[in-house]
Design a protein around this nucleic acid. Sequence first.
DNA 1: AATGAATGAGTTTTCATTCAT
DNA 2: GATGAATGAAAACTCATTCAT
Lengths: 200, 200, 200, 200
Amino acid sequence: MPKMGQAAARKRAFVEAAIASIHKKGIVALTMADVAREAGVSAGLIHHYLGSKDQLLHATMRHLLHELQQILKHRLSRAKNPHKRLEAIIESNFTSEQMRPEVVSAWLAFYVQAQRSDSLSHLLHIYSRRLQSNLTAGFAAHDMPLARARIAAESTAALIDGFWLKAVLVEGVMNHKHAVKVLKRHVAQQIEEASATGIA
Amino acid sequence: MPKMGQAAARKRAFVEAAIASIHKKGIVALTMADVAREAGVSAGLIHHYLGSKDQLLHATMRHLLHELQQILKHRLSRAKNPHKRLEAIIESNFTSEQMRPEVVSAWLAFYVQAQRSDSLSHLLHIYSRRLQSNLTAGFAAHDMPLARARIAAESTAALIDGFWLKAVLVEGVMNHKHAVKVLKRHVAQQIEEASATGIA
Amino acid sequence: MPKMGQAAARKRAFVEAAIASIHKKGIVALTMADVAREAGVSAGLIHHYLGSKDQLLHATMRHLLHELQQILKHRLSRAKNPHKRLEAIIESNFTSEQMRPEVVSAWLAFYVQAQRSDSLSHLLHIYSRRLQSNLTAGFAAHDMPLARARIAAESTAALIDGFWLKAVLVEGVMNHKHAVKVLKRHVAQQIEEASATGIA
Amino acid sequence: MPKMGQAAARKRAFVEAAIASIHKKGIVALTMADVAREAGVSAGLIHHYLGSKDQLLHATMRHLLHELQQILKHRLSRAKNPHKRLEAIIESNFTSEQMRPEVVSAWLAFYVQAQRSDSLSHLLHIYSRRLQSNLTAGFAAHDMPLARARIAAESTAALIDGFWLKAVLVEGVMNHKHAVKVLKRHVAQQIEEASATGIA
DNA sequence: AATGAATGAGTTTTCATTCAT
DNA sequence: GATGAATGAAAACTCATTCAT
């Protein structure tokens, strides 16, 4: 148990060093030596714990997804009503943790890697579907027809990704709070318009 | 001119080989030998024309942006009214050329590279600002207050990127026509709502 | 064609460098850098031509077997009668080329490697069976019953290997000519005794 | 003594683990971790008892030689007459212990290592000379002239090695009993022929 | 005594780049 | 202009060995 804990803590530290290194050098130029330096250990040690560069990167990507899921889970559990749940989903994607430049860089790297790894792309699919169904459920709970809820969910998901991508590319320019505000307005707009259409 | 034309044609061919190779192997694993094989020439020749791997990648990224700008310019010039101009902007981003898997992969690689290259990130900024101002102008022409037009432009740009990113990650799932339809509806919604609010 | 010849000559040179290096450092400690130094080229070049250390060693082992087979073939083609053929087989195994210390060391390395490689052990089996059948045929041609010829062949083959192994281990002590002499006597003895027994 | 006994037992266990590991992975690829795993201990412990990989291998080789010498000594002490002594020498080399695949692999590794280690090659020389003189004495006791006895001893030793080598290379094919039978016949043949020649 | 964490030197391998032809 | 041979620097990875616990 203490050993196990030790090993897990080490892996975690290496994963965080990987995230920091990806931000500093980019995945393309990233070397194990970079990560080792960042973690303050010898390069061999990372191999000892993670096996290979590939496995380190996989662990890193899984870590990103896991963190996001934890935040989402936590915020959803505290949301009192459907509308709050929709807002919780939005906020989870723009947490200060999620918007840390290192994390943002790592996610982009994740997307690049996912294109070459079935297991990563699979994880991404699962996450994507879950987000879509969470959003759809949130909209559907507002007396919105399912088809309409699906489209609203789809555009909301796309907006989340779009704002996030802008944050990646135009670092510093994007204001998380602004993004969240626009997104919440979009959600409200979808709901209002649906109910308006419904009445008419 | 004939020599120049020859050289330009060569460079162009190498850039296209680079795009294809990025799709096949990913930027992370991409080698000059891959590109050379794809182009059917020796690796040395690419150096002869492009100078270095870095320069080849830069040329490739500039090519992507240039192509998109050409399409946009062409479609905008044919759009008869402000609304058509907004639709032209949307359509330009989901051309069958833009949605070619190779091109999509290359754009993602572009984004990754841009984070490490001032010149690339500068190009991206310029393009982003131009897109934003084009969209804003389109909305403003619909009797929308400037502030409102800016927000509509911003969310529209984010939706474009968001749908595009989904296309990258969930290859095959995203239907270009569907994306275009949802985007056009979004644009219409923004305009309608603005006029409704304006009256009230 | 000239390219092909060049490449073949290079490979050949690297194989010979490998043989020399095995003698100098032993297979256990052998590095690609050793072989490269011996060949007077960079380590990368050997990879360029041979692909990997493993493939270099395989090529080396195949070379050894091929050389021996060539010598054997040549000498057998010149042997006028069954007895000469038996002697040719013996002599082929103790050629000055075969007894070069480098070659001897490489053969021992071959034996060690063969235990871990199906393809090498397969080559060795084939060679071993061919030797056995050649010897058996040689003895059978002396009016020896087949069963007897087989045993004579077997002990002759074992003697060849035994003398060769002594040469490996007690380098310098073994005199090739002496080995050949004893072996020829052994062959003669087998034939005589068989005919004696046959008469009795 | 009890501590000494403990330490000795440990070393012995590690030597046996080394023999087993050499068979499983080959000397070329053998690592201390392999041996440690085989012995069910940590790699550090082997260093603690043996000092280094080199010393472990040396101890292993000495062990092989020692075992063979013990068997030989034991069997010779039970042999009642010169002829039985010759047979005892032969049998000692084809004991079921000596023919265990692990032991056979280890001997071949021994031969390879001996080429690079003066102390190992020295041990081998001593053993080889002792075998030769034992065999010579055995033949000489049959009223054979010394020169003749030496040649008979030499060929007998070579046959032993040759059959053993076949066992190494064509694992499973060689039948120990058959080898012993052929060897005994060879010995008998040498003696008979010498006496026949002597009389004539 | 025993472990396993940690290192650093060394090994294979890869690749952008150069250069003679 | 075009090739591909050749290099050298740097990468991932391995492993014997050390050492704190």
